[in-house]
Design a protein around this nucleic acid. Structure first.
Length: 576
RNA sequence: UGGGGUGUAGCCAAGCGGUAAGGCACGGGACUUUGACUCCCGCAUUCGCAGGUUCGAUCCCUGCCAUCCCAGCCA
């Protein structure tokens, strides 16, 4: 036990040594190593990545994977990682998300320095690049409607047909494109299309639209523009302008890569980036799509984007997950191209691992049962010393008030205990953590037969919890002194869904929402001082789990509110 | 009956021609003033399947099977 802390510190050292040594590289690291080596594509260049969210929603744990991969890769290779708002579609985006995204990334522990960009800042440059394409005969203004474009695109197995506008002259295209920009045309009447190959097996190469008309105010450029570039055209330009060396994205963009490369190859960009795809994160018992998360919020199935049951970063933060635990989680699940569904228990493991070392212990009775020590002096209150973290002696100790009247956990007493129940029952002896050994002498039940009061005698010589005669006392209970207890509300969270794969539910994910994903306990008794604590600090409530103060309690809330981050592992099973 | 991916344990994931790392989960045990932590032990004779090349194949070749993505003027 005394060696615990040393062992753990040693293990942490080993882990960080391994992280820096990095014996096995994932496929992206291996590729970058090759490319920056002599003769490689990026020889002499500084590795430069970017995280490019569209500001149209809140970040979730899946985004954390992309964030960690991009920022960590830059760090490992002595490079840089930019933060860029990919705001090329004004109808979906909003300024409110921009701040939230930055807050979440900072909270996760990453810093983009002064390299915070907006794709919309490049609109003028993109317009000029588009004109280059037109002049090279590689893009044309098309008058087909959206329906007509769809109809002529062909199908997965049949080639498409050329647009009748495909062979307009560069002069005519330049003129039309300028008039599109000047607002002479209504939405949907014209597009700028790349002239590639209408019979390509890759649908993305069948003369993709690269500019559309949208008379919509943009959250940053207002009404300055009424034509907006499409992702496939804009993204390689954004990367090129920022001199990104490696543009990482998720696997479903794999068949966009030929188009990405087509743009890079046909434009004279400041630097040529390379797109690399990896598998996005899937987790069981949750959904990850923005659309579905939004739906949960709008249907009031949850209490907002930051509901502690949500896989959003703001939800995980409110729940009490630490940034380190999330970074560790992402680091450990690895990077590959294999479709994956990571067990949520792995995330919980990472939270416990970090919190076990960093969280101070406190005592909290969630379902209180009154205990009276019949042989303890009536008006006495003594102070007992309690360690703050048995795994970290530097966390120090605190003084706990103790008296005749105490709260214990209702679960910790049974009139007729099953086998191997070593908590309190008539005649049995247990230890009150940090306090005394007590023996149950009596109990009271109400008209329903429920136990409402327990009586016990304490062993005066066992102060601190040590038996002077060396007798073994197996059970140790947590408790809270009645006089100094803090009344509180505690929220217990479970998975939002009843099945592992809610996306695959026959009747839709809403049909498998779990009814009891939130349990609100209104009459909890917390150790004194917990009402002074702020959100963001994790505590271990002894024998229960890790908790932190809610960062968004409702206005009318009078009691402190604590959220359970994750329970302690529990190998105790009540025998039937 | 197009194009592009992916298949190693319940879940992640190493492995790159020399005889299946590690983690999570799970099961057992030790320790214990948290039934926590920590520690120990167990957990793929086999790498989607079938052939082939080779002294030797998870790694190379061929075929097959399964599964995911693509027909937005979304990203």
């Amino acid at each position: 036990m005394d060696n615990n802390h040393n062992d753990i510190a040693e293990k942490a050292d080993q882990a960080s040594a391994e992280a820096t040594t990095e014996t096995t590289q994932n496929f992206i690291q291996a590729l970058i190593s090759e490319e920056i080596a002599p003769g490689g594509r990026c020889e002499g260049r500084q590795v430069h990545t970017r995280f490019p969210p569209e500001p149209n929603g809140y970040l979730h744990i899946g985004h954390a994977k992309a964030i960690c991969i991009n920022f960590e890769l830059a760090k490992q290779f002595g490079g840089l990682c930019n933060l860029r708002m990919d705001d090329t579609n004004p109808v979906k985006e909003d300024i409110e998300y921009v701040d939230a995204i930055q807050e979440d990334i900072r909270w996760l522990g990453y810093d983009w320095g002064d390299r915070f960009y907006y794709a919309s800042d490049y609109f003028p440059a993109m317009y000029e690049y588009a004109r280059d394409l037109i002049r090279k005969g590689l893009a044309y203004v098309c008058d087909l409607s959206a329906e007509e474009i769809r109809a002529t695109r062909g199908t997965l197995t049949e080639p498409g047909t050329n647009s009748p506008y495909r062979n307009r002259s560069a002069e005519e295209n330049l003129d039309l494109f300028e008039r599109m920009k000047n607002g002479e045309f209504a939405d949907g009447t014209h597009t700028l299309r790349a002239k590639i190959d209408m019979s390509s097996g890759n649908m993305n190469m069948r003369d993709p639209v690269i500019y559309r008309i949208s008379h919509t105010d943009h959250h940053r450029t207002g009404d300055k523009w009424c034509i907006y570039p499409m992702y496939d055209f804009a993204h390689p330009i954004e990367d090129g302008i920022e001199e990104i060396t490696h543009s990482l994205c998720s696997i479903e963009f794999e068949d966009h890569r030929p188009l990405y490369e087509w743009v890079v190859d046909n434009l004279d960009l400041p630097a040529n980036p390379r797109q690399i795809e990896f598998a996005r994160l899937g987790m069981n018992y949750t959904v990850m799509s923005k659309r579905k998360l939004l739906q949960l919020v709008e249907s009031k199935s949850v209490d907002g984007w930051d509901d502690p049951r949500m896989p959003t970063l703001s939800g995980l933060r409110r729940r009490g997950y630490t940034p380190l635990s999330i970074r560790n989680f992402i680091d450990r699940i690895g990077v590959s191209k294999v479709p994956n569904t990571v067990d949520h228990a792995f995330l919980e493991y990472c939270a416990r691992e970090d919190l076990n070392l960093s969280a101070e212990r406190r005592m909290a009775v969630l379902r209180p049962l009154r205990l009276t020590l019949t042989n303890y002096p009536d008006d006495k209150t003594e102070m007992l010393e309690a360690e703050n973290n048995p795994n970290d002696s530097s966390a120090g100790t605190r003084q706990l008030p103790f008296s005749k009247e105490l709260w214990i956990e209702a679960d910790d007493f049974m009139i007729e205990p099953p086998r191997k129940y070593f908590r309190l029952f008539p005649g049995n002896e247990v230890r009150l953590k940090h306090a005394y050994i007590i023996r149950c002498t009596d109990y009271e039940v109400d008209e329903n037969g429920d136990v409402v009061h327990v009586y016990a005698e304490y062993d005066e010589r066992s102060r601190g919890g040590v038996a002077t005669d060396g007798r073994k006392v197996r059970g140790t209970l947590h408790w809270v002194d009645v006089n100094s207890a803090v009344d509180a509300r505690v929220n217990l969270y479970e998975n939002l869904f009843t099945i592992e794969d809610p996306d695959g539910a026959e009747d839709g994910y809403e049909s498998v929402l779990r009814e009891d994903s939130l349990t609100v306990l209104e009459s909890c008794k917390l150790e004194a001082g917990l009402d002074e604590e702020k959100p963001g600090i994790g505590f271990q409530f002894l024998r229960h789990g890790y908790f932190c103060r809610d960062n968004r309690p409702s206005a009318e809330e009078k009691m402190p509110v604590f959220n359970r981050t994750v329970s302690l592992r529990d190998s105790y099973k009540l025998p039937k």
